[in-house]
């Protein structure tokens, strides 16, 4: 079930040097929906995700979160907005000087207002939910890729954010672990009401199982925006990518 638009992009463009990575992006992310950002590798999906999170600033257009233009607000307001986000990074981005438990507890400790015993309880509960109950005291360097992904997922969702962004959650993982990770994405999404989730991936088969709507990015532009049922009437490239194997061997961008 999707509700009001939480993030709205209007004419968004981002370039590195003279090369436009994404351009003229119009996009809405709605409360309660699980949106799949799909497309071949190197076409701007991850860059767009960073723009949605305010981790990159658009060179044209605007990204509005709950009506506020991310480029116009002051750093404190931006920090407040970011508390509504959870972000799973493609390369995990776990703090390697912290244990798994401390990594997951980090957003709660930084946000303040939660007592330490309650933090410990919630961290343990979340890690057990993700099958990592035994890894509390281990360090990221001692974990496998799949475990790191799940720790990243626990950290991204422990604060029960209203917007969760997953950057290629299956990158570098074997098919079995990938399927498990996508199922966890769905579980995390449905564990709260009205969460807006965006998943970047080129792993269409697994995306089909979890996503409500798809936005296909091709050569930095939106080629398709809609549910799976609408693909038939769309650009042939979309069907080719969605039902075929166009670009699926390359890494997500």
């Amino acid at each position: 079930m999707s509700g009001d638009a939480v993030i709205v992009c209007k004419g968004v463009g981002k370039r590195y040097g003279r090369k436009w990575i994404v351009r003229d992006i119009d996009l809405e992310v709605r409360a309660g929906e699980l949106l799949g950002l799909i497309g071949p590798g190197g076409h701007g999906k991850s860059v767009l995700l960073r723009l949605l999170a305010g981790l990159a600033t658009p060179d044209e257009g605007e990204v509005r979160v709950r009506g506020k233009n991310l480029a116009d607000i002051d750093p404190f307001e931006l920090a407040e907005l970011r508390r509504e986000y959870g972000y799973l990074f493609q390369n995990y981005a776990l703090f390697d000087f912290m244990s798994v438990a401390d990594n997951v507890a980090f957003p709660l400790r930084q946000a303040g207002g939660v007592e330490e015993p309650e933090i410990a309880r919630r961290v343990k509960e979340r890690l057990e939910q993700l099958g990592l109950g035994e890894a509390l005291d281990r360090f990221p360097s001692e974990l496998s890729g799949g475990m790191k992904k799940r720790v990243g997922m626990a950290r991204a969702t422990i604060g029960e954010p209203a917007i969760v962004l997953y950057d290629d959650p299956s990158a570098g993982l074997d098919p079995v672990t990938s399927s498990k990770i996508f199922r966890l994405v769905r579980t995390m999404h449905h564990s709260q009401d009205d969460v807006a989730s965006v998943v970047v991936s080129h792993d269409i088969d697994r995306m089909k199982v979890i996503c409500d709507r798809y936005v296909m990015i091709f050569e930095g532009k939106v080629l398709f925006d809609g549910p799976e049922e609408a693909i038939e009437g769309a650009d042939p490239m979309v069907g080719k990518f969605f039902f075929g194997s166009l670009g699926q061997s390359s890494g997500a961008s």
């Binding site: 960073r50 999170a53 981790l55 750093p75 920090a79 407040e80 970011r82 508390r83 986000y85 972000y87 990074f89 493609q90 390369n91 995990y92 981005a93 776990l94 703090f95 390697d96 980090f106 957003p107 930084q110 946000a111």
Partner: peptide, 14 residues
């Protein structure tokens, strides 16, 4: 390069 600094920013930490 391992995006840990971005992770801090994403967690609203300067």
């Amino acid at each position: 390069v391992t995006e840990q600094v971005d992770a801090l920013r994403a967690l609203a930490i300067d």
